[in-house]
Amino acid sequence: MTDVTLKINGETRSAAVPPETTLLKMLRESFSLTGAKLGCDVGDCGACTVIVDGLPVNSCLMLAGQADGREVLTIEGLATPDHLHPIQKTFEDCASLQCGFCGPGVIMSSKALLDANPNPSVAEIRDALAGNLCRCTGYTKMIEAVQQAAQVMRSAKSKRAA
């Protein structure tokens, strides 16, 4: 067994898992965080995207042991019981999701993009979402939602600064 202690959504968690366990499997089965999805399981679809130490990664391509000591943010870490995260809110407002299976991955990719680049161009948004496959929406409304979220997050930030 591999002992793993890591910070998930701000909270320190530990588990002992077989070495071949992926970070995705540990999140879902050891910690019941089922937001990140098992899609293709080989790094093509992005449904398993989580943010590790600030960077979006395919959690299906990382062993749980490799996440030991690191900081992981999943979709469950975004909203509070009362408030959706601005990205979740604009995805809702723009009707950017249909079946929703890809949603947690898309939103985590968008979050990582906006953290690094608060005012992305459409080309930059497309590049950031190229690793997230969606079979329902055709992506256009997702790109709109990311643009709107960027605006909301920028104005919230300037308000805080003022």
């Binding site: 790094g43 995207t49 960077l55 391509l61 990382m62 990719s109 590049d127 950031a128 690793g131």
Partner: peptide, 9 residues
């Protein structure tokens, strides 16, 4: 190469 998530790994 790949996409953002795979390039980060």
């Amino acid at each position: 190469i790949g996409a953002v998530q795979t390039r980060n790994l």
